[in-house]
Simulated assay, not measured.
Amino acid sequence: MSNNGASVATEGASVQSVDRALAILESLARLGEAGVTELAAELGVHKSTAFRLAATLESHRLVEQTSDRGKYRLGVGILRLAGATTARLDIVQEARPVCRALAAATGETVNIAVLSEHSALYLDQVAGSSALQPHNWVGQHIPLHATSNGKVLLGGLDDAAVDASVGELTRYTSHTITSRAALRAELERVRADGYAVAVDELEIGLAAAAAPIRSAHGDVIASMSVSGPTFRLPEEALRAVVKQLTEAALEVSHRLGWGQR
């Protein structure tokens, strides 16, 4: 009983600290800059508490001290977080009409994914007419080595970055790539062909193809995929989908500035 009480108290203190740290960020956004005394007054806490919170935020570069070392302001870490969010919103916004057209043309589900540390993160999904009750993948993470989206995203990296991004090559089916050498060979094909396929690799009965979405600088920043059951996407049908898919992904890349002069 006492252990449970201590645990709840610790959790409550942690939540309070997070709340106070966010309050500091909001205060600095409103004030521009502020010293520890001013922040403590804003939060209604002791100066030592305000200092510890500010120091923690500073260690994550979310705040920084001004040149006179007396006051704090928002740091470059905020820009990094905001930039990542803005970039993802731009991708979704530019890709959405293209995804809708592709889903309508193929009748299958179209997804947009980005690299998120050691997995692929789904940002958006448009269901085609053939997908009666599609699984909603938005916000979910999927393995890189066993999916078409993951292979495309890995294909945009150099070998060192691929090794850093891919951990254990978990076997999901008998068709899953589980050796580093086989994965490297697969990624070479993806880079050469400009698209990736995955049939029965993550789940038996699931077929998918993906193509890269590039930034204005030519970097692979996202992938677009078309997926459906293998009985609707046998080899010949998948080849037809790949042509439509690569054209759609290229259109989104152009919308983001790739190939524009």
Results as ranks from 00 to 15, higher is better:
residue 205 G to D: 07
residue 209 A to L: 10
residue 168 E to A: 13
residue 237 A to V: 14
residue 128 G to R: 02
residue 87 A to E: 14
residue 127 A to V: 07
residue 194 G to W: 07
residue 179 S to M: 01
residue 69 R to P: 00
residue 217 H to V: 10
residue 138 V to H: 01
residue 171 R to G: 13
residue 130 S to G: 05
residue 183 L to C: 08
residue 254 H to G: 15
residue 216 A to K: 09
residue 137 W to M: 10
residue 221 I to R: 00
residue 199 V to M: 02
residue 110 V to A: 07
residue 17 S to I: 02
residue 60 H to I: 01
residue 64 E to M: 08
residue 55 A to T: 13
residue 103 A to T: 12
residue 56 T to E: 05
residue 126 V to S: 06
residue 158 D to C: 11
residue 72 Y to W: 11
residue 243 K to F: 07
residue 260 Q to I: 14
residue 147 T to D: 06
residue 108 E to G: 07
residue 198 A to M: 08
residue 202 L to F: 15
residue 24 I to D: 00
residue 240 A to F: 02
residue 176 T to D: 05
residue 237 A to N: 08
residue 232 R to P: 08
residue 42 E to S: 11
residue 198 A to P: 03
residue 229 P to M: 09
residue 142 I to C: 04
residue 153 L to E: 03
residue 179 S to H: 11
residue 189 R to W: 03
residue 208 A to T: 13
residue 154 L to A: 08
residue 155 G to N: 06
residue 188 E to S: 13
residue 111 N to V: 14
residue 91 I to W: 02
residue 185 A to D: 15
residue 43 L to W: 00
residue 32 G to P: 01
residue 30 R to E: 08
residue 239 R to N: 11
residue 163 D to E: 14
residue 149 N to T: 11
residue 58 E to H: 04
residue 167 G to A: 06
residue 247 E to K: 11
residue 250 L to Q: 14
residue 203 E to H: 12
residue 134 P to H: 07
residue 56 T to I: 04
residue 135 H to Q: 12
residue 147 T to I: 09
residue 244 Q to E: 13
residue 226 V to P: 02
residue 255 R to C: 09
residue 24 I to L: 05
residue 222 A to K: 01
residue 233 L to C: 09
residue 104 A to F: 02
residue 52 R to A: 12
residue 56 T to H: 01
residue 188 E to I: 12
residue 257 G to T: 10
residue 150 G to M: 07
residue 39 L to R: 01
residue 173 T to F: 08
residue 174 S to Q: 12
residue 237 A to M: 08
residue 204 I to V: 15
residue 186 E to S: 15
residue 38 E to Q: 14
residue 241 V to N: 03
residue 42 E to K: 00
residue 25 L to W: 00
residue 111 N to H: 08
residue 134 P to F: 11
residue 103 A to E: 06
residue 77 G to A: 12
residue 161 A to V: 05
residue 22 L to C: 13
residue 187 L to Y: 04
residue 200 D to I: 12
residue 164 A to N: 12
residue 224 M to I: 15
residue 19 D to E: 08
residue 124 D to G: 11
residue 196 A to D: 08
residue 11 E to D: 06
residue 161 A to M: 09
residue 69 R to F: 05
residue 87 A to D: 12
residue 65 Q to A: 10
residue 140 Q to Y: 06
residue 259 G to F: 09
residue 250 L to I: 02
residue 139 G to I: 10
residue 103 A to F: 04
residue 67 S to A: 15
residue 219 D to C: 06
residue 166 V to C: 10
residue 212 P to Q: 06
residue 175 H to T: 12
residue 20 R to I: 00
residue 168 E to W: 05
residue 106 T to L: 07
residue 57 L to R: 00
residue 83 G to Y: 05
residue 129 S to R: 06
residue 37 T to K: 09
